[in-house]
């Protein structure tokens, strides 16, 4: 009897899941298996080539550059975003009515990238507002003359991307931090205060340790969103941008356009496995505390 009820339980699950599972197999699982298979074959003659494709990409300069830039971008952006988000969320958590401020933080999320990029260009071009402002400052103070830095065509392009990433994603992070902070039971903090703990001690000993779970999800989701910076990068600088912002996303797109499917398959597998391992490690770190 017990066994039978378990069976129907499972079949009910399958019934609700069916459309999603079928689509998943057709559009994700099966083709992904095919990509893994292809990564071991040559693209033209379709011969088995072992690890040749993998060797090719790891000696490919464009791939190494893209990996380096993407890693640099994530390693700069994510800690920065996490910190800025926390600093912005802390004062908000004390407010009773933070709705308007939250809207302000969240709004960039709603702005379509294409519209944002137009404004970015007006700011960061050689003749843009930033240089205008710097020039005015310079002439007023008499310290420097006209500034004509090209932010999008030089290594500063990297920082332009960092700024626009932070600008766009701060709201998301603030909301997640807020949810974490407000989730801490008030009794805990009050008990600590009664015991004579200072605000600083409360923060270090109670608030921060309780936010570890939030930290994990914020890092993961920020990481996921960091791949979308490609839109800004592509729209401001095209398919072959300044070499400091040549990201993995550019490389994948260019390989795709040139039909370099063997390299792409191998790189897909590498990036996929890498992401999988990162997620697992983060999860472990989080669980172990």
């Amino acid at each position: 009897m017990r066994k039978r009820s378990h069976f129907t339980w499972r079949s009910k699950f399958i019934l609700f899941m069916a459309p999603s599972l079928v689509g998943m197999f057709i559009f994700v699982i099966i083709p992904f298996a095919d990509v893994v298979r292809r990564s071991f074959y040559t693209v033209v003659t379709k011969q088995f080539s072992g690890f040749t494709n993998y060797r090719t990409i790891f000696t490919n300069q464009a791939f190494m550059l893209a990996v380096k830039n993407t890693l640099r971008f994530t390693l700069v952006c994510i800690p920065l975003l996490v910190l800025i988000g926390l600093l912005a969320a802390l004062p908000l958590s004390k407010l009773k009515n933070a709705g308007a401020i939250k809207s302000l933080y969240l709004f960039p999320l709603a702005m379509p990238t294409a519209t944002v990029v137009m404004v970015w260009k007006m700011f960061f071009y050689r003749q843009g507002f930033i240089n205008l402002l710097l020039t005015k400052l310079g002439t007023m103070s008499g310290l420097w003359g006209e500034v004509h830095k090209d932010y999008l065509g030089s290594s500063a392009a990297f920082w332009v991307l960092v700024i626009s990433y932070i600008w766009k994603n701060t709201g998301y992070t603030v909301i997640l931090w807020l949810a974490g902070i407000l989730g801490i039971p008030n009794e805990l903090l009050e008990a600590a205060r009664v015991d004579g703990a200072s605000e600083r001690q409360c923060f270090m000993k109670i608030v921060l340790p309780n936010l570890k779970g939030s930290l994990y999800t914020i890092v993961i989701l920020s990481f996921l969103n960091s791949f979308k910076i490609y839109r800004e990068a592509y729209l401001t600088a095209g398919a072959y941008p300044q070499q400091d912002i040549y990201l993995l996303q550019h490389l994948f797109n260019n390989w795709f356009v040139n039909l370099d499917f063997d390299k792409m398959a191998a790189a897909t597998v590498c990036v996929g496995v890498f992401l999988f391992i990162v997620i697992l490690i983060l999860q472990r770190l989080w669980d172990s505390r």
Binding site: P31, D34, V35, F227, L248, Q249, F252, M264
Partner: peptide, 8 residues
């Protein structure tokens, strides 16, 4: 990310 699922 999209780039990983693009080829498949």
């Amino acid at each position: 990310p999209f780039q990983v699922t693009m080829l498949s």
